[in-house]
């Protein structure tokens, strides 16, 4: 067999493998992507909540995208406590102003950033939330202060439609 002929074979093999790999990839992708959130799940992207009946010091929990959202009307003490914390004392430094644009209302995902349990209201060492699963303590701004959770509880996208209604998502 001449050397030139071998090279031609090699090229054909490589080209065949390459086209084959693209074909296999293109066939596998729909099988993988079908597991991602479908159109009906994505359609439930936003929810409106009436907050007129929430008094200061109370929290309501609503379901958004299958996850609990805490809407807490904070007391003055809680707000000042959240604002007085120095940023260098925080594991995940975020200012309270950036978490609650309207300081009276704290709207956040009620999901512990450790492994996804729902933390308990008004518990823990920082008067905020406490996760019973693996012992994470959050402050009155929902920021992680102690325990295994890596970050603060997430603030979803939301807006005040009017004084009594919040739209989440």
């Amino acid at each position: 067999m001449s050397e030139k002929k071998t090279n031609r074979r090699d090229f054909l093999f490589t080209a065949t493998y390459a086209v084959g790999a693209v074909g296999v990839g293109a066939t596998i992708w729909p099988m993988i992507d079908q597991m991602n959130p479908d159109a009906s799940v994505k359609a439930l992207a936003s929810t409106e909540v009436d907050i007129s009946s929430v008094n200061p010091g109370k929290t309501i929990t609503v379901l958004w995208r299958g996850k609990p959202v805490f809407i807490r009307r904070r007391t003055q003490e809680e707000i000042s406590e959240a604002k007085s914390v120095k940023l260098e004392d925080l594991k995940h430094p975020e200012r309270d102003e950036d978490r609650a644009a309207n300081p009276e209302w704290l709207v956040m995902l009620g999901v512990c950033t450790h492994l996804g349990c729902v933390p308990l209201d008004q518990k823990g060492d920082y008067n905020g939330w406490f996760c019973p699963c693996h012992g994470s303590h959050y402050d009155t701004s929902g920021r992680i202060r102690k325990g295994p959770a890596p970050t603060n509880m997430e603030i979803p996208k939301y807006e005040f439609v009017n004084a009594n209604t919040i739209k989440i998502g």
């Binding site: 993988i32 597991m35 991602n36 959130p37 479908d38 799940v41 995208r65 299958g66 996850k67």
Partner: peptide
Amino acid sequence: VTWLWGGYSVDNPTLTR
């Protein structure tokens, strides 16, 4: 995690798979 759930939390798509 979203891919495993088939949504934004553990829900029906998670159960069926």
